[in-house]
Each structure stands twice: as structure tokens, then as C-alpha cells.
Simulated scan of single mutants.
Amino acid sequence: MNLHKITKFAAIILAVVSVLFLGLLMASSEDGADNKWITPLIYLSYIVLAICIGIVLIYVLKNLFSDSENLKKTLISVALFAGVLVVSYLLANGDDVKANGEVYSGSTPKLVGAGLNAFYILTVVALGTMVWAGFTKIKK
């Protein structure tokens, strides 16, 4: 039995179980805040999410390590992204921030600033790449 048939049967089983849980949830009383069918639905969604992430990771890593040129390009991209994050963190301001009557100090303002700086840097790089690609198309 190949993987396509296995995943198709697993998807059908999960769909039937989900419809069963949904029917039980809809048939239950609406007055109670502690509905006993919400917890199984949440656990089912966690299980499906974990299965999906596991399958994606397996195939991504399999394809990544099967081609050395692809692995090299991926490692270069990851290193450049990590470099952007390091530069963003170094440029971030870590001063105390007062908001909603609370004072935030320590690493929280620095991490927020680093995230914003990374967003700005990556936005400029993306816009520059689009402009560069447009100019090269016009030049041809």
C-alpha cells in the first residue's frame, strides 16, 4: 500500500471522527460553559496539527538532504536570515516602555524592537528585489 492510499484513508477517518464530534457538540446543550465535547475537538486538532507538521518535516528534510546543491542554498538563506535577526537585535533599543500603566523593562522592549527592525530590513530587501527584477525585465 503506497503512501497516497494511507494518507487518503487517514484523512477519511479523521473527517468521520471530526463530523461525529461536531454532531455531538451541536446536539449538546448550549447552556453550559463547560461543554464536554470541546476538549476532544481541541485534542483532535492538536493531533492532526502534529501529524501534518511531522509529515511536512519528514519530506522537507528528506528532499533537503537528498540534493547537496539545494542544501547549500538553503543553509545560505538560513544564515542570511539569522544575520538579519542578529543585526536587528543589535540595533534595537532596550529602554523601558510605559504602556497602559505598566512599565515594561528588560528583554521585552528589545525583542519587540528587534522584530520591528527585522520586518523593516526584510521589507526593504523584498522591495529592492522586486525593483531589481523589474529593471532587468525592462532592460531585456
Rank of each mutant, 00 (worst) to 15 (best):
4 H>Y: 07
5 K>Q: 14
5 K>A: 12
6 I>W: 09
7 T>C: 03
8 K>V: 09
9 F>R: 05
10 A>T: 13
11 A>I: 06
11 A>Y: 08
12 I>Q: 14
12 I>P: 06
15 A>I: 11
15 A>T: 15
17 V>P: 02
17 V>K: 07
17 V>E: 13
18 S>N: 09
18 S>G: 10
19 V>N: 04
19 V>F: 07
20 L>K: 03
20 L>M: 10
21 F>S: 05
21 F>M: 11
22 L>F: 10
22 L>C: 04
24 L>P: 00
24 L>A: 03
25 L>S: 05
27 A>M: 11
27 A>H: 07
27 A>Y: 11
29 S>C: 04
32 G>H: 08
34 D>F: 14
34 D>N: 15
36 K>S: 12
36 K>H: 12
39 T>V: 05
40 P>K: 03
41 L>F: 01
42 I>A: 15
43 Y>H: 06
44 L>P: 00
45 S>V: 15
45 S>C: 12
47 I>F: 14
47 I>G: 13
47 I>A: 15
48 V>K: 14
49 L>A: 06
49 L>E: 01
52 C>A: 09
52 C>E: 06
53 I>K: 04
59 Y>G: 14
59 Y>F: 15
59 Y>N: 12
62 K>R: 15
62 K>G: 02
64 L>A: 02
65 F>K: 07
65 F>W: 12
66 S>D: 12
69 E>D: 11
70 N>W: 06
70 N>H: 07
71 L>A: 09
72 K>T: 06
72 K>P: 00
73 K>E: 04
74 T>F: 12
75 L>G: 01
75 L>C: 02
76 I>K: 02
78 V>E: 01
79 A>I: 10
79 A>F: 10
79 A>N: 07
82 A>I: 09
82 A>N: 03
83 G>N: 11
87 V>L: 14
89 Y>M: 13
90 L>Q: 14
93 N>A: 07
94 G>R: 01
94 G>Y: 02
94 G>A: 14
95 D>V: 10
95 D>C: 05
95 D>P: 05
97 V>R: 06
99 A>C: 09
100 N>E: 07
100 N>L: 12
101 G>Q: 08
101 G>Y: 10
103 V>Y: 11
103 V>W: 08
103 V>P: 09
104 Y>E: 08
106 G>F: 11
106 G>K: 12
108 T>N: 02
108 T>V: 11
110 K>Q: 14
110 K>C: 04
111 L>C: 02
112 V>M: 12
113 G>H: 09
113 G>M: 08
114 A>P: 05
115 G>L: 05
115 G>I: 01
116 L>R: 02
117 N>H: 11
120 Y>A: 13
120 Y>C: 08
122 L>P: 06
123 T>E: 10
124 V>P: 09
124 V>L: 15
124 V>G: 10
126 A>W: 11
127 L>S: 13
129 T>K: 09
129 T>C: 09
129 T>P: 00
130 M>R: 04
133 A>C: 14
133 A>L: 15
133 A>K: 15
134 G>M: 02
138 I>H: 01
138 I>P: 00
139 K>E: 09
139 K>I: 06
140 K>W: 07
140 K>L: 07
